[in-house]
Every structure is written in structure tokens, then in C-alpha cells.
Design a protein around this nucleic acid. Structure first.
Lengths: 225, 225
DNA sequence: GCCGGTTTGTTCTCTCGTTCACAAACTCCT
DNA sequence: AGGAGTTTGTGAACGAGAGAACAAACCGGC
């Protein structure tokens, strides 16, 4: 890691805060569309489902964009957060693995509207290439390097079966991708400097199952008490 | 919250540990299928992508299932974790909203194989009901209460557009569902005792974008240095 | 039976994240 | 202009999570 010079606005935003900024961004977009021009931290926090003190502290990492006694200007704050996250410009994205999930991702409108543009759909299965999904042609996986170079792609999405995920990740990293969103049920190992985020449907369900089971146990015990 | 009697194995497993147990479970299943009968905490931790000390501490919350100087019996530990999570029996699940994502979820094989059974697909759009997805008929949303009562469903999945999500959650809770997995881009408010987990694709991408932007800034600064 | 090597379970410490509480600062009304 | 009422920004307390380090316990050989 390179040391940061003091001249740079040394934004050492905590990871937990970074994860909440998109939630605030969405809440602000909602408010803006509803015609609200100003809002308090209390109102915004409620809309985002968090504590208002936490919201204020989170926002304070970005700067002082509110006015005491008044609140925040919705559109101004919205822009500041978008700029901080980096979604004021469009990010080109590649999706690899056009199965059921890949289809859903390609058709997901939330990407386009929120600063992301799907520039290519790739699949290793020749039977799938040539197909058109969401207006984009599915191309062979071997086109990866060319597409990444051509569009300057930095973010890749893996929606392949688990056994293929690591190999896809390796090729992505070699091609120059440095951020990966992984939907495959597999632990990826990548070199330092590459970010991986995992979304795992069955893990989420298992966490719910654990809590559900505990609730059932508690209730059972209550009855015998 | 009701006080817990000391007689119960007072499992106060930290949330962070609960979130990792499914990962360990998957790693153990892999090892078991590969024919490994015993493994050390070091090996299992590597397989799950975590620190070995953390793994041991996590497992210690469940009990003392290893043998010092030897390691863990793969199948035995696997069963213990599965039992703790509650995936030794099948959980009936309802999916609401059979759009692109709902299709993908219905077809996702990871549910069936990991202790979950999709008992119904529901959609409010009459044009979709009657369709068959993954061998299951899509039924009208109004059938929710009957299905929940009939199968004893405790877990519901919301894959609707964001504006419909809160109304669906309210109906689910009223029908008796107490755990919700929410894929809609919307903050749900539910009564105490109901668990909600959110999976939001665009938030994940935005978090990656933030880090990606920071990497770019760092590099730029390095060049001018 | 005992000793060396190995691996778990646990304690301690440090860091990170969250919440509370309050001073600073702004608006509006008189 | 001044005071009452709000609301932000932040310092401090508090709690949870992660990693290091070590004692307890087990196996195998002699």
C-alpha cells in the first residue's frame, strides 16, 4: 500500500460506512423524486432504516454538507454521495455465465440506472453464444481479454457454476479486472489489490433458518415453562 | 425477549459466527465428497477462506467437537454444524414475484440440496399465474395465506419490484411468516421478532465502484508524485 | 508408562463499529 | 437585535469482532 500524502483529502472512510452510502443514495433519490427538497438526518435515517446518529457520523466522513437547524439539501447531498461512491460516471461491466442467474442479472434494470453499463455477456458454452439477452449478444468466454481492453472494464460479475468460478476469476484478473462480484457458491482467491464481494443465496437462507430454529426452540421452551 | 433458563444450552452464538457457519458447512461438504475423513482447523480455514484462529473460536461456540493433536472428523463436524443451523430438516419456502430474478431463484438448485424446498411460486400478475417454472405452477398471490398455513411456511422470499415489496412483506408477516429474504431494492419495516435479510445487487456493485475509484485515484497520484 | 510433536480450545488484547450526549450553529419570531 | 427552538457535527463511552499467543489434551514411538 502506498502512503497517502496529506495534500489529498485523506478519505479513510470506514468499510461499514461505505456499505451504507448506497442505501442513503437510494433513499435520497426516492425523496427527490417525491419532490422533497430538504430533509433532516432523522427523516433520512428513518427512510434508510438506520439510527440518525450513525447517519450523521457516516455523512461527516464525506464533509459538512448539512446546515444546522435546517437539515440537508436532498439533491446536493445526493450528488455528493454519488460523487464519493463514483457513480456519477458510468462503469462498464462484464457478466460471465449466462445461466438462469446471468439472464436475470442481464435484464436487471437497476444496473443501468445506477451508473453501471453491461458491455458484454460471456459464456463458455458454445450453445449459448449467439443468443441475445436483454439486447446484448452472448459471446464466447475467450473474447474476455479483448472486451476488457476495448472498454476499459474494471468490474466483472461471475454467475457461473461453482467449479468454474476460480478459473473465470483468474482470467478476469489476468485481463485487468480488479473488482469482482461473485454469485458462485465458491471461495475465490485473488491477488492483493483485487476486491471480491460475494453474494450467496443459500447462505442467506441458512442464516435465516438458524434464527428461525432458535425462535422455535424459544417458543417450545416457553410452553414447557 | 424472554429470558433464557440456564438449563438450556445457552447458545449465544455471535451474529458474525452464524454468518460463517454456512461457509464452513459448504467447505466440509466439499472435503467429504473428496473423500477426506479428517481435517485440521488450519486446512478447513484455508478452504473456507478465513483465519484458523477465528475458525476454532467459531466452532467452540457449538461445543468441543475436535480432538487435540488430531483435528476434526469431517462428517461428524458437518452434521453438528448442519444441526446447529437447522438444515438437517427441510424448510418450506415461498417465493413471491416471478420475474427474471424469481425465475432464477426457482431454478436455483442450491436451495433444494441445502435443506430448503420451494413449496410455491406466487405472482400478483394474472398473466404469469398458470405458467410453470422449474416444475412448479405459478399461483396467484392471494393464495399466500392458504399455502403458508398448509405447509407451515416460516421463510419467504421477495423478488418483486421495489414498490410492491413492503405490501408483500406485510401480507407475509400477517400470514405467519417470520423470516424474509428480500431481493427488492427497498427498506422493509417489520414487527419485532421477524428477521429480514437483504440482498441488493446494485449496492454490491456500488461498493465495488467506490473501491475501484479509490484505486484509480491512488494510481493517478502515484504518477504525479 | 513416559516423552516429543501436534492441534485444539481459550484468554487477552487491539481494532473497529455503534450509540449516547452535547456544544456549535442556524432559522424564525418578536 | 435577541432569544427560543431545531438540527448538525463530534467527542466519549460502550460493545462486538478479529487476531495473537499459549495452556491443555491427544497420538505415536520407545
Amino acid at each position: 500500500m502506498t502512503a497517502r500524502t496529506p495534500s489529498e483529502t485523506a478519505r479513510d472512510i470506514p468499510e461499514a460506512t461505505v456499505a451504507r452510502l448506497p442505501v442513503y443514495l437510494r433513499a435520497l433519490t426516492s425523496l427527490s423524486e417525491a419532490g422533497t427538497s430538504t430533509c433532516s438526518s432523522e427523516a433520512l435515517a428513518a427512510s434508510a432504516g438506520v439510527n440518525s446518529a450513525m447517519l450523521r457520523k457516516d455523512l461527516s466522513y464525506l464533509g459538512s454538507y448539512g446546515t444546522r437547524g435546517v437539515g440537508y439539501d436532498v439533491d446536493y447531498l445526493r450528488y455528493q454521495i454519488a460523487r464519493e461512491i463514483g457513480v456519477t460516471q458510468d462503469w462498464p461491466v462484464v457478466i460471465v455465465g449466462i445461466g438462469n442467474l446471468g439472464h436475470a442479472l442481464a435484464n436487471y434494470s437497476g444496473f443501468r440506472s445506477r451508473g453501471f453499463r453491461t458491455v458484454a455477456l460471456l459464456d463458455a458454452d458454445p450453445a449459448r453464444t449467439g443468443e441475445t439477452v436483454a439486447g446484448i449478444d452472448v459471446r464466447p468466454f475467450d473474447d474476455l481479454e479483448g472486451i476488457v481492453a476495448e472498454h476499459g472494464v474494471a468490474i466483472g460479475v461471475i454467475a457461473t457454476p461453482a467449479p468454474a468460478a476460480q478459473a473465470v476469476a483468474d482470467r478476469m484478473v489476468a485481463a485487468g479486472i480488479s473488482s469482482i462480484l461473485n454469485f458462485a457458491a465458491s471461495v475465490l482467491t485473488v491477488p492483493a489489490g483485487v476486491d471480491v464481494r460475494k453474494v450467496d443465496l443459500s447462505i442467506e437462507l441458512q442464516i435465516l433458518a438458524y434464527h428461525e430454529q432458535r425462535k422455535a426452540q424459544d417458543q417450545q421452551q416457553e410452553e414447557t415453562a
